[in-house]
Design a protein around this nucleic acid. Structure first.
Lengths: 334, 334
DNA sequence: CAGTGCTCCGTGAACGCTCACGGGAACGTT
DNA sequence: AACGTTCCCGTGAGCGTTCACGGAGCACTG
């Protein structure tokens, strides 16, 4: 028995030969074209089926109208921030008849370059949450339409979508000050390589605190892993530090909720002993106990806007920027 | 100014001509092949860049080793059940070097056929949550590797992954009975077309109830929309019906949590006045107040297993079935 | 009977790329 | 001086499909 290296693909020609017709007739049968005898169609279809024939996407794409595949790079599907963005992207892409391929970096900075490389080869346009400048450059260089989301250090020549946390942080801190808080700790995402850099929530928080005459140096900012557990651990640090913080502001809802739960587990009352405020406005934040005060961001809109920008670039538009303004939703946690 | 119909694509030939070299040399430059003069490569690359040249995915796919794209059809990214499955699928696909295209039906049965049609044309294999027999048939007919998830009426010739709720329901009902409950209501997902059919949670619940000598007719099952709001509304029905239910079992966590919150809003104590049990084991269920007792399902594993089955079919394996056994996690809600 | 229309089917060509091969120039080797 | 090597580069072929065209067969018309 000869070893068949790679079983050659079954082509339209094979089916044609086997059914005693021409390529074109097989094509007509498979694609439901009208100019074919119904009996012939059935026969051809049967032969095709029995041979296990499947038309090649690539050959089709070569000739017919091309399908655009949009690459969507997110950090982690399990992070509840992203599903809403994905939802917006899927909807907006669907409206345009585009396909969406989702890639996840698993929140690992070192994987970003590898993901970027695949993206460059396999999609026609890209919407991405990326932090590594190399990965960003890679995609940008490829020349494909590209929108970078939630990155404060986006090169000016690439389109982006960002959330106006400058305004948001002012509202959040203002709200806490109104409630009488003077000692506010922030739990920052330690996974970001640009911790404390210009435009980050970290520095915007310090700025807003300073505006209200609060202590505003790095001492009040605690690094936390981007997860419930990370928030909880960081809360431990806050408590252990003896800062006497009466309010905690999380980089996002996940961290804030993790911290809040840890505080409760330690016997603290929320918001009496310590108030909590998050960022992002996850659905989740409404459901926890107590419901979390949070800077709500329309994440679905962020996704839709990104697709819109990609579409604009396809028709030759230059780099642009979309800004989403967060809205403070006050709930029982503060 | 003549109207340019569709701006013809920039091909490798265009770049070659413009750079004064051959196709092959451009190809070598673009693909980082060694047999080319560094100076020439730079020049070609610059020309390509300036012309906005981007190699055609399709033409590449025609000749080179083909990339497999796996289609993943889910009901709704916003339903927290799915992200975990997606995560498993992405990971398992990535291990095999596959791409994953995600499609969402938006939980709309009537959209399933349309989605199925796109899927058939655009991917090489498919993992899907689908209910409409027509849509399922469409994909199955196409002959592509196909795994159907969480569908009790799967045709025997198509592979599937299912959750063993027969065992699960017995555990859940048994647990409630142990706690002294005799009047248990179930909140069913009314979106499923096969309500009450064989193998559904609905009928498995009734079976388990009967085993424990509880009242077990359809009266105790209430239809609910698959969402928090749906669960809440269904809880109103339970209360209005005057059944004196002391425990409620949800089709899934979402419905159970919605119901539980509504019960609390109506002044009931959980679990004293009414106990709640969910299905799925969402992360969310740990975070609500009180934490929800639930039949936990390893959703990530479900996704991984589905990909494994698809891979098996690619190498010629026949239809198979994966069964995931849920595990009852008892928390404060019961 | 020639002409006209319709139905069904087959034959080049083209899509844009990579692979396999071959060839010329420049250099060193016998 | 003739011959091998190495380095670059170009040419034909082929991937699997659809589109545009043309042609055969038949029925119906004038």
């Amino acid at each position: 028995m000869p070893m068949s290296a790679r079983p050659r693909r079954i082509t339209i020609e094979d089916v044609a030969r086997s059914a005693g017709v021409s390529r074109q007739t097989v094509s007509r049968a498979v694609n439901d074209k009208p100019e074919i005898d119904p009996a012939t169609r059935q026969r051809v279809l049967r032969v095709a089926q029995s041979m296990g024939y499947r038309p090649s996407r690539f050959a089709r794409g070569m000739v017919g109208p091309r399908l655009t595949t949009l690459g969507l790079v997110i950090a982690d599907v399990l992070n509840p921030f992203f599903p809403e963005v994905v939802s917006g992207v899927l909807a907006a892409a669907d409206e345009r008849g585009w396909q969406v391929a989702v890639y996840s970096t698993g929140s690992a900075l070192e994987r970003e370059t590898a993901v970027a490389r695949t993206v460059v080869d396999h999609v026609d346009a890209c919407v991405a949450f990326l932090l590594d400048p190399g990965a960003i450059e890679l995609i940008h260089r490829s020349g494909m339409p590209f929108v970078l989301l939630d990155n404060e250090h986006r090169p000016p020549s690439v389109s982006g979508g960002r959330i106006d946390f400058a305004t948001g942080m002012r509202h959040a801190v203002g709200h806490l000050v109104e409630r009488g808080h003077r000692r506010i700790a922030m739990l920052d995402d330690r996974g970001r390589p640009d911790a404390g850099g210009h435009g980050t929530r970290h520095s915007l928080f310090l700025g807003a605190a300073a505006e209200h005459g609060l202590p505003a140096d790095g001492e009040w900012v605690f690094p936390a892993a981007n997860s419930l557990e990370g928030g909880a651990a960081a809360m431990d640090d806050v408590l252990a530090g003896g800062f006497g913080a009466t309010a905690v502001l999380g980089y996002n809802d996940l961290i804030a909720i993790g911290a809040m739960r840890r505080a409760r587990d330690r016997g603290m009352r929320v918001p009496e002993d310590c108030a909590f405020v998050g960022c992002d406005g996850l659905t989740l934040s409404r459901l926890v106990d107590p419901p979390l005060t949070t800077l709500t961001v329309d994440k679905e809109l962020l996704g839709r806007a990104a697709v819109r920008q990609v579409a604009a670039q396809m028709t030759g538009a230059g780099a642009g920027e979309t800004v989403i303004v967060p809205r403070l939703v006050v709930r029982a946690s503060s």
